[in-house]
Amino acid sequence: MNNASSRTIYNVPNALTSARFALAIAVMVLIPLGYFGSAMVVFLIAASTDWMDGYWARKYGQVTKVGRIFDPFVDKIIICGSFIALVEVAGSGIASWMATIVVARELLVTSLRGIIEGGGGDFSASQLGKWKMVLQCAAVVSVLLCLRYQPAEMWLQRTTTVIIWSAVLLTVYSGYDYVLAAARVMRKQDDA
Rank of each mutant, 00 (worst) to 15 (best):
N2Q: 12
N2K: 15
A4H: 03
S5K: 12
S6Q: 14
I9C: 14
I9S: 15
I9N: 15
Y10V: 15
N11E: 08
V12C: 07
P13G: 06
T17K: 09
T17C: 04
T17G: 10
A19I: 03
R20P: 08
F21E: 09
A22N: 03
L23D: 13
A24G: 10
L30R: 02
I31V: 15
P32G: 02
F36A: 02
V41C: 06
F43C: 11
L44R: 04
L44N: 10
I45H: 08
I45R: 12
A47S: 15
S48N: 15
D50C: 09
D50A: 03
G54W: 05
Y55F: 07
R58I: 12
Y60P: 08
Y60S: 10
G61M: 14
Q62W: 04
T64R: 13
K65H: 15
R68F: 02
D71F: 00
P72Y: 12
P72K: 10
K76Q: 13
S82R: 04
S82Q: 07
F83I: 00
I84S: 09
I84C: 05
I94N: 02
W97A: 06
W97V: 12
T100G: 06
V103A: 13
V103D: 03
A104K: 08
R105L: 13
L107F: 05
L107S: 01
L108R: 02
T110N: 13
T110C: 01
T110Y: 09
S111Y: 14
I115K: 11
I116P: 09
G119T: 14
G121K: 00
S124W: 09
S126E: 05
Q127A: 15
Q127D: 11
L128R: 08
L128C: 04
K130T: 00
K130G: 12
Q136A: 11
Q136K: 07
C137H: 10
C137P: 00
V143W: 00
L144K: 08
L147W: 01
Y149G: 11
Q150W: 12
M154Y: 04
M154H: 12
W155E: 07
W155F: 14
L156N: 01
R158Y: 14
T159N: 09
T159K: 05
T159H: 01
T160S: 13
T161Y: 07
I163M: 07
S166P: 05
S166H: 01
L170W: 03
T171Q: 04
T171W: 04
G175C: 11
G175S: 00
D177I: 11
D177L: 06
D177E: 09
Y178M: 10
A182M: 05
R184Y: 07
V185S: 10
M186A: 15
R187D: 07
K188P: 03
D191P: 07
D191I: 07
